[in-house]
Design a protein around this nucleic acid. Structure first.
Lengths: 207, 207
DNA sequence: GTCTATACGAAGATAGAC
DNA sequence: GTCTATCTTCGTATAGAC
C-alpha cells in the first residue's frame, strides 16, 4: 500500500506548507494522535480514539488523511519531531549542562502534566509492527537523528569537543527515552529527575 | 476478567514450582511471547504469532493458559524479569564499572543476535493499554524495581556509596531501555555501545 | 491434549447519501 | 465536509468433538 505523506487538498496546495490554526480539526487530530500513540502505542490507537480525543467529526478521517492510518501516524511523528526541535532551538544555555537540562525539561513537563502517563510517539512507533512500513521507520530514524544532531551541535557550541558532544547527545536521548518508560511504570517523575542529575554530573565532569 | 497467574494443572501442582524442559510447549510459548512482546508490543502480538513462533499446537492456548492472553503476558514478563536477574546475579565483577558492563552485555547480546530488532517486554507492556490491568502493571513495576535494586546492591558491594548506587542503577536501566529503542530505530548496536561508554565514564568518575 | 467450529467484538477502509 | 452503512479482516474467547 502506498503511504501518502504529501497531501494535496482540493485547493491543490501542500497541506503542510500552509499554516493552520491550532484549533482546526485536522491539526487537533494530528496532535491527539501523537499523544495517544505516545501513551498507548500505534497499533493500540484507533481512529475512534483519535476522534474522541480531538473532538473531530467522523467524516474528517479520510477527508484529511486519504492515506489512512499510516498517513496520520506519519504526520504525528513528523509533528512531534518538529515540536521537540522547536523547543530545543529555543535553548539559550551557554553551558553543556544547560543544554541537556533544557532538553530534559521539556519531557519533565510532558510527564508531569500527563500524570506520568505520557510517552514518546517516536519510541512507540519504533516498537510497533507499523515500523515495518519503510517510510514510517525512516520518519522515526530521521526524528531521532535530528534530535541527536541538534543536541550535539548545541553541546559543541557550549564548548564541548565534537566527539564527546555526539556521544553525550546520544546518551541524553537514550536516557530520556528510558526514563519515560520508567516514569510510566512507577507512576511518577522520579526516574527522569534521577537521569537528569546523572547527565548533569556526566556533562560537568567533561567540561 | 480474572487474571490467573497461579496455574493448577490436572495434577494439582503449581506449574511454576515444577521444573520443566525448555523444549515443552508451555515454556516455548512463554519464551516466544516474551520475544514477540518485546519486539512488537503486547497488543500487536496475537496468539497466532505465539503459536507460529513456538511451534506449539493450537489447542495448547487455553489448556496451559486458562487466564487467556493476560496470563500469557504476565508469565512472559515474569520470565523475562527472572532471566535478567539470573544473568546479573552471575556477575563476578569487583568494580562498579564491571557491574554495569555485565548488565549492558546481556542486552548487547540480545540486540546483536536479533539483528537489532529485539526489545524489552517490560518496556513494551509499560507502553501498552494492557498495562491498564493493575496486575500486569504491578508485574512490570516489580521487574524494574528488582533490576534496579539488584544493580544498586552490586554497585554498593563494589565500593560505591548507597545513594550514588541507587541513582546510577536507575540511570543504567533507563539508558539501556532507551538505547534498545534507538538500536531498533537505527538498525544497529551503536547506541548501546555509546551509552555503555558514557555509563563507564560516569561510574568511574564516582569510584 | 489437541483439534475444529464458532461466537463476538473491534478495527481499517470504502461507498454513497446529504 | 460530514454522516451512515457496510465490507472485510483479525483477535480473543468458548464449546464441544476426538
Amino acid at each position: 500500500m502506498m503511504v501518502v505523506i504529501e497531501v494535496e487538498d482540493q485547493d491543490g496546495e501542500d497541506a503542510r506548507a500552509r499554516p493552520r490554526e491550532g484549533s482546526d480539526a485536522r491539526t487537533r487530530m494530528v496532535q491527539a494522535a501523537a499523544t495517544l500513540i505516545g501513551a498507548r502505542g500505534v497499533s493500540a490507537t484507533s481512529f475512534a480514539d483519535v476522534l474522541e480525543a480531538s473532538g473531530a467529526p467522523r467524516g474528517s478521517i479520510y477527508h484529511y488523511f486519504a492515506g489512512g492510518k499510516r498517513q496520520l501516524v506519519a504526520e504525528a511523528i513528523e509533528w512531534t519531531s518538529d515540536q521537540v526541535q522547536a523547543h530545543q532551538r529555543g535553548c539559550d544555555a551557554t553551558t553543556p549542562a544547560g543544554v541537556v537540562e533544557h532538553f530534559v525539561d521539556l519531557w519533565r513537563q510532558i510527564v508531569t502534566s500527563s500524570g506520568a502517563h505520557a510517552g514518546c510517539p517516536l519510541a512507540a512507533l519504533a516498537s510497533d509492527p507499523y515500523a515495518d512500513e519503510p517510510q514510517l521507520a525512516a520518519a522515526v530514524e530521521r526524528g531521532f537523528e535530528a534530535w541527536t544532531a541538534l543536541l550535539a551541535d548545541q553541546l559543541a557550541s557550549a564548548g564541548m569537543s565534537g566527539s564527546d558532544a555526539l556521544a553525550i547527545a546520544t546518551t541524553t536521548v537514550a536516557a530520556m527515552e528510558g526514563a519515560l518508560i520508567l516514569c510510566r511504570a512507577h507512576g511518577n517523575v522520579a526516574p527522569l529527575d534521577a537521569i537528569a542529575t546523572q547527565l548533569n554530573q556526566l556533562v560537568t565532569a567533561r567540561h
